[in-house]
Design a protein around this nucleic acid. Structure first.
Lengths: 161, 161
DNA sequence: AGCAGCTATTTGAAAGCTCAACAACAGGAC
DNA sequence: GTCCTGTTGTTGAGCTTTCAAATAGCTGCT
């Protein structure tokens, strides 16, 4: 066990500001979607992915990876979306273990109805507050972090020797 | 109802990268805390706030505002933390509606035990991936967003006329 | 004093998420 | 074929979050 690399006061301020900003931002987005369309943001993202795929169909595993959601969480989510008639499950023709999630017409319509309000909320909450350079920075930093975390995610670090 | 201000392709990429990065980051932090210390990150933040307050005591409403958490959620959380013996409730002496949340010695010890692993996780997941300038940018942007969302949070925008 | 209208906090139910365990299948070695 | 190992997806239990409703106490007005 090595010495803890504590955060400097500056790093700590940054980390806390980050947590605060993100909580406020995502709470706002999620609340708007639930309030106006009855969809949690996590479900909205699933619907979006499906809607953008040719055939509006994706395998569970692909959908899970794309949305960065655990298999379990996705399975539960798809079950709820099926109950609303927005998604339907089909057997995968090439792999009998597989399941396909298919966006229904009702699901597509629900998404289309929710989109304008959601986009407006994102714009107001995020983009309206930042200038072009800051938006650029945020994009760069987000991409670096996403790559970094995709690569190192769940790893324990190099062995001691 | 005015025209939807859709996101440009660039804005959309930024928004999605941001969502991905944020999800990966917080999932990593939350999973580490649960795994190694049995505490969800939300509870960790509550304990930290209390530990930094003189007397290790805060009123529910103040604690809720500081952690940007709803009153209901905080109340449930404090109930769980009480069950573990990490926090205790006391009556507020100046306002009979009020309740104080007090961090116990056990709670402080649990926090002290969890901190090194948590800080290390934050450093590895976030700060190790960014250079000094990017950290600086992230801090600035986060502060702007937090202020913006604190100010505009929940507002509907200017009236039509 | 009495009352109306806030503010502070809690509660219960419904919904989501996480984790661990499980069932079913694929792919390759033998 | 048979066995072993890894993959895919689901399930149930327990815990957390959300939302709406309820309780209780404060504050200013008459």
């Amino acid at each position: 066990m090595s010495e803890t690399r504590w955060l400097s006061p500056d790093e700590q301020r940054t980390w806390r500001a980050y947590l605060t900003a993100h909580r406020l931002l995502l709470d706002e987005i999620d609340a708007q979607l639930r309030r106006d369309s009855g969809i949690p943001h996590a479900y909205y993202e699933i619907l979006v992915r499906l809607s953008e795929t040719p055939g509006r169909t994706l395998r569970m595993s692909v959908l899970a990876e794309g949305t960065r959601v655990s298999a379990s969480r996705l399975s539960h989510a798809i079950t709820r979306l099926e109950e609303r008639g927005w998604v339907r499950r089909e057997d995968c023709p090439t792999d009998r273990r597989g399941q396909l999630a298919v966006l229904t017409d009702d699901g597509f319509a629900a998404l289309a109805a929710a989109a304008p309000g959601h986009v407006e909320a994102v714009r107001r909450a995020l983009f309206d507050a930042l200038d072009a350079e800051q938006v650029q920075s945020l994009g760069t930093i987000s991409r670096i972090l996403a790559d970094h975390l995709d690569a190192t995610g769940g790893e324990t670090g190099p062995p001691e020797a």
